[in-house]
Design a protein around this nucleic acid. Structure first.
Lengths: 224, 224
DNA sequence: GTCTATAAATAGATAGAC
DNA sequence: GTCTATCTATTTATAGAC
């Protein structure tokens, strides 16, 4: 598993921020140091639930994942899941939040001109899917896009906004937006077959091999 | 909607065959003409249920589709669905049966040598998805592949057996199987974004345009 | 903040009358 | 072959004790 930079999105709009360090535990917090802020222990449980939800949704999709299962995975009571996130729908929305690093990584890959941009995009995409801090949200999105309206909308949004924006300076000329769509199509297809359908030998192939063969396919569309 | 040849698979193993013409209705059957065969009226209801199931599964996926909903779509009682197909799982299996014409159409597209095979494959694939007699089964397969083991297996099988077989004489040399995987990846990605996620402007683009831009991308992998 | 208990809806599946 | 009625399990979600 390759590791990309450790930039993560703030998450849901109503998510509290940890005071300073990420590893803050209940017992390590100085007494009387939380005026108006969160009470110690709360955030940890809340995040544990969200992480568990992401993992479950990523692995089994929206419908197949029950609130009970998420609670079990987070090792908390079922009612706590509702207490923190209300409905299953809302929890799913939070789990869908795409890590901020995604547009950054893809934009970085699109830099550097037209030459070899196909291979760089494939490599960046694989890096995001092989990174354990970004994979669950991506997997949740793609896996549920077929049956959940919001996940599908998020997928479209990712394909257009993020990808088309990143490729804005690279894919130019006639039908530029359509061609960007087709590049996104190739990348989503790759995720689908390699990580979800687990098609062999593709799923077991190493990154370099995939980049070598698939990069030129993206490049063909970049060139128009 | 373009129409491909009208070859359809026999369906499930336990499916009865219609006597002669497809349009046979109860009243039009000669009396005493069904010794040991099916009783009139049965087949029609049975097929209506299967068609309705395919339509529902195609549109909403496995989990979201209830037996009651299928019964409603077929305009029959719920218990009839169980009567004919037993479990929901079994009905889903029947609905997944990929039309026989699929491998035929793809094999035909692969004929004619390496030149322009990318464009021919894209065009054949789009024809299958735009044909109302094949689309529901394909849609059912791809839409549920993310959450249903059997659908995923069918997708893998389609990608390897059917596609790799068709491309056997075209994709040769180093990593031929992996490259066939990547071609299937592109086609499934296309179906996913154009027909399921409905990404614009891709979904609204006409066939020729998609073929023109996407064909060379497949060709790049064929060439290696 | 965390738990027990349960409401309310819906699912798949079956029995049996006709 | 077709319908009514119902069983059983599971789901999301909430109320309320501590």
């Amino acid at each position: 598993m390759k590791s990309v930079d450790d930039v993560r999105e703030a998450g849901g709009a109503d998510r509290e921020r940890a005071g300073a360090a990420a590893g803050t535990v209940a017992g390590a917090v100085p007494a009387g140091k939380h005026a108006g802020g969160r009470r110690p222990g709360e955030t940890r449980t809340r995040e544990a639930i969200l992480d568990a939800a992401r993992a479950c949704f990523a692995e089994r999709g929206f419908d197949t994942t029950s609130m009970r299962r998420i609670a079990e995975a987070a090792e908390v009571d079922q009612s706590l899941v509702h207490h923190f996130y209300g409905t299953k729908e809302n929890l799913f929305l939070q789990a869908l939040e795409v890590p901020l690093k995604m547009p950054q990584v893809l934009a970085a890959a699109a830099e550097g001109g037209r030459d070899g941009v196909g291979e760089r995009m494939v490599r960046a995409h694989l890096a995001l899917w092989d990174d354990l801090s970004t994979r669950p949200a991506l997997m949740t999105m793609v896996r549920s896009a077929s049956v959940h309206r919001v996940a599908a909308a998020r997928l479209r949004e990712t394909a257009t906004t993020i990808l088309a924006d990143a490729l804005g300076n690279v894919v130019t000329g006639e039908d530029a937006v359509l061609r960007s769509n087709l590049i996104a199509t190739q990348l989503i297809g790759l995720a689908m077959m390699r990580y979800i359908a687990v098609l062999e030998p593709l799923a077991a192939a190493d990154t370099d091999t995939v980049v070598r063969y698939y990069g030129p396919a993206l490049q063909a569309i970049v060139e128009g």
